[in-house]
Write a protein that binds this DNA or RNA. Structure first.
Lengths: 236, 236
DNA sequence: AGGTTAAAGTTGTCAGACAACTTTGCGGTC
DNA sequence: GACCGCAAAGTTGTCTGACAACTTTAACCT
């Protein structure tokens, strides 16, 4: 029987990884910067190459670092957002049950409400026209349910992008990644729903263009809550 | 000059890691389950042990797996929440600037608002008494600013825990982890603030106990927004 | 039966070698 | 001088083998 104790002493690789991680988090190593070569790290820490590689593999798996054979390892350009996006995507994938879906939907609803208000109140004309363009793309794709679903996702991401909120954009990106796509795609079992969805999106776009935050929020909430109901019905 | 292309072919270790990850995310490997031994993985994939180890190191760094020398590697018990909590903590650590703080605060405010409403409306007596207990702990620690700050964090986590929302509890845990502690601690530069903070918390507790969601939300928002103002003032 | 100890099993670390790929620098060509 | 080709050096990826550190199992003894 395996012992209960889960705490084990950190390995050499973990210690080295922690040190590099700290250099990244503190800003001493910035996105795009090159890490010391494995040879240098071996010399600095007095350990073997395999331990150093264990550290780099860990950082790479977490999205902090990318390695290119023959060139070196570099701090990832999207070191700020990718790990969060991916771990949220994994969280969503692990929560395929009813309650998990409800909780993820709570988050999505909160984030989009916040952003649609901000976009309506503070968004620039260019931001609003991008939302309109995303809506037009949905109309064009209404023949193909899969591509329509993708355009739907793009619309909601544009909504958050227009609010200029990096954290919320990252969160929504995570919710939509991986199997999180079921958020939007699985709603379109019947073609009749497409027309309804288009109408609801158009209402949001027009309220945003009119600068009416309350109305935009209302239409968005209506759309999202109705989508959830559809999803739960079809999910059984 | 390094080439622009960031996309490189996945390594053998990454492919193996992806496969194990899929087994975990799909539920075929459940928390506490033991992974195949390195020897078995070597045989199954026809690769070397170093490639297999690269895969396991990646999963371990991401918190999906823990390894115990002499025993084996196991799917982590908290595989669902830890990666999200940690990546959010890292995100917060990387966002020490003004705008990043504001965005993180947006998230915190949304989450706590949601939870305090739910606790006031649907919370059971036991949940509410735990919130009261967390408040009493704060009063006891008012002499030591550091411990008071910790009790403050514990109070807000209790608030979210009482709402029985795993996702939001995980998010708040991430916001408070690591240097995210500055959220609460850095607010107590002056002892005079302690009394103010205690009063605001007490108002929240009482509104929750009275089952008044609107009032509880109002007091909580007041407290948090005022805390943010204090923080921004002291941050300069 | 219970405890002790040896054996087997498993992950951690080290070392060395070569493969695959990138970057640099040299030399030649125009 | 600018450009190209090509060799050389530099760097990460993979394989192999060995031993250390630790855990689990199994045999043994009392």
């Amino acid at each position: 029987m395996p012992s209960k104790r889960a705490r084990t002493n950190p390995t050499v690789g973990e210690r080295i990884g922690r040190e590099i991680e700290l250099a990244i988090l503190s800003g001493r190593l910035r996105p795009g910067d090159r890490l010391p070569t494995e040879e240098e790290l071996v010399a600095r820490h007095g350990s073997s190459r395999s331990a150093v590689r264990e550290a780099v593999h860990g950082l790479r798996a977490r999205g902090l670092v990318i390695s290119r054979r023959g060139s070196g390892s570099y701090v990832a350009a999207d070191v700020g957002t990718r790990p969060l996006r991916e771990s949220l995507g994994h969280y969503a994938t692990l929560r395929a049950n009813e309650r998990g879906y409800t909780e993820l939907f709570d988050l999505r609803l909160m984030v989009e409400r916040f952003c649609v208000r901000r976009l309506a109140l503070l968004g620039k004309a260019a931001d609003r026209s991008r939302l309109r363009a995303a809506f037009e793309r949905m109309k064009m794709e209404k023949g193909d349910l899969t591509r329509f679903g993708e355009a739907d996702i793009a619309f909601h991401q544009e909504l958050v992008a227009g609010a200029k909120h990096e954290l919320f954009a990252t969160i929504l990106g995570g919710l939509f990644s991986d199997l999180g796509r079921r958020f939007a795609q699985d709603s379109y079992h019947r073609v009749s729903q497409v027309r309804q969805v288009l109408l609801e999106h158009e209402a949001v776009v027009e309220a945003v263009e009119a600068g009416d935050a309350d109305l935009a929020e209302g239409h968005l909430v209506t759309h999202l809550v109705r989508s959830r109901a559809d999803f739960q019905k079809s999910d059984g």
